[in-house]
C-alpha cells in the first residue's frame, strides 16, 4: 500500500521534472530576442485591434512605433493622451493631433428621399452598390443597410430605423476610420471635432446637377454656390454641383447654414440661435421643408446658368 503511494509520487515528480527541463531547453533554444519596449508600448495601447492606425493590430502598431518612431503613425482610438504616454516611454516628442470624429454626409432620410425601387437581395450596402445606384433616385446617397454599423468595433455608429441613416455617437467614436472604408458611397468622413465639439459640414454627396439632385432628394446639395459666396473665410468650395467645407478653414460663423436653401449644411453642438436672427435656421431636420419650398425658384436660376 505504502509503496504504491511512494511510487506514484516519485513517478509523477520525476516526470514533472523531466518535462520542465525539456520545456526550459526548448524555450531557451527558440527564444526570440525582442525589444522589451514593444511590450511596454503595447500595454499602453487601447488593445482594440481595430486597425484604425493602418496596422494589422495593436502589436503591429507597437512594433512600428519602436522600430520606425512615432513620426508617421497615430493611434486614433487612444488619441493624444495615449500618444503622449507612448512618446514619453520611447523618449520622443510628438505634436498633439486634433481629435477627429466620423461625420455622416447624407441627410436623405426616408421622408426626404423617396424609394423608387424595391431592393430584394442581400442586405448589405456593398451588394447594392455593386448592382446599381440604390433604391432611391440619388445614386450618391446612403444605402442604409449598415455596412458601417457592422464594421464599427466601438458600437459608435448605428442606423436609425426612422431616418434610415447612420448616426454617430460622438462619445464612443474613436475616429478609427473603419466605417469610412466600409461605406461604398464614401459618405462618412473623418472631420476635426472642433472647439467644444462644434462643427459645420455639408451633409450631402450628390454630384448631379441641381434639378436632378433636387428631384431625387429634398435635402440634397444642389450646388447653387450661395454658401461659398457667403463664406467670409473661403472655406467652402463647390465642385461638381457639390459644396464642401474645409474644416481647417471654417471658423464656425454659420452664415452658410442660414443661407443654404435645402438645409444640406448641418451645424452640431451649437447653442440655440437667438430667435430674432432667422426663425427657420436652427439645425436641419425640422427646418428643411418650410425653408425649401418658398426658395425653390430662387435656387434654380444659378444652376441653370452653370449649364
Amino acid at each position: 500500500m505504502n509503496t504504491t503511494i511512494i511510487f506514484t509520487i516519485a513517478t509523477l515528480a520525476i516526470l514533472g521534472l523531466l518535462l520542465a527541463i525539456v520545456l526550459y531547453i526548448v524555450a531557451q533554444k527558440f527564444k526570440v530576442e525582442e525589444d522589451p519596449r514593444i511590450d511596454t508600448v503595447e500595454s499602453l495601447l487601447p488593445g482594440a485591434n481595430c486597425g484604425g492606425c493602418g496596422k494589422a493590430g495593436c502589436r503591429a502598431f507597437a512594433e512600428a512605433a519602436v522600430k520606425e518612431g512615432l513620426g508617421s503613425i497615430h493611434c486614433p482610438v487612444g488619441g493624444n493622451p495615449v500618444m503622449q504616454k507612448i512618446a514619453e516611454a520611447l523618449g520622443q516628442t510628438i505634436e498633439a493631433k486634433d481629435p477627429q470624429v466620423a461625420v455622416v454626409r447624407c441627410s436623405g432620410s426616408c421622408d426626404k428621399r423617396k424609394k423608387t425601387t424595391v431592393y430584394d437581395g442581400l442586405a448589405t450596402c456593398a451588394t447594392i452598390a455593386s448592382l446599381y445606384g440604390g433604391d432611391t433616385d440619388c445614386r450618391f446617397g446612403c444605402l442604409g443597410r449598415g455596412d458601417c454599423e457592422a464594421v464599427c468595433k466601438f458600437d459608435a455608429i448605428k442606423i436609425n430605423p426612422k431616418t434610415g441613416l447612420p448616426e454617430v455617437d460622438e462619445e464612443k467614436c474613436t475616429a478609427c476610420g473603419a466605417c469610412t472604408k466600409a461605406c461604398p458611397k464614401q459618405i462618412i468622413e473623418l472631420r476635426n471635432k472642433g472647439p467644444k465639439g462644434r462643427r459645420v459640414y455639408v451633409a450631402c454627396r450628390n454630384q448631379d446637377k441641381g434639378a436632378v439632385a433636387r428631384k431625387a432628394c429634398l435635402a440634397a446639395c444642389i450646388g447653387c454656390g450661395k454658401c461659398a459666396k457667403t463664406c467670409p473665410f473661403e472655406a467652402i468650395t463647390v465642385e461638381n454641383f457639390l459644396a464642401y467645407i474645409d474644416y481647417t478653414k471654417c471658423r464656425m460663423c454659420r452664415k452658410c447654414v442660414v443661407e443654404c436653401p435645402t438645409g444640406a449644411i448641418h451645424e452640431v453642438n451649437f447653442p440655440p440661435r437667438p430667435a430674432a436672427v432667422k426663425p427657420a435656421a436652427p439645425a436641419a431636420p425640422a427646418a428643411a421643408k418650410p425653408v425649401a419650398e418658398p426658395q425653390e425658384k430662387k435656387v434654380e436660376i444659378p444652376v441653370e446658368k452653370k449649364d
Binding site: 437581395g121 442581400l122 448589405t124 456593398a126 451588394t127 455593386s130
Partner: peptide, 12 residues
C-alpha cells in the same frame, strides 16, 4: 439563402 449574392461579393 442568397448564396450567390455573398459569394459574388467575396469573389470580387
Amino acid at each position: 439563402i442568397p448564396l450567390l449574392d455573398t459569394i459574388r461579393q467575396s469573389k470580387a
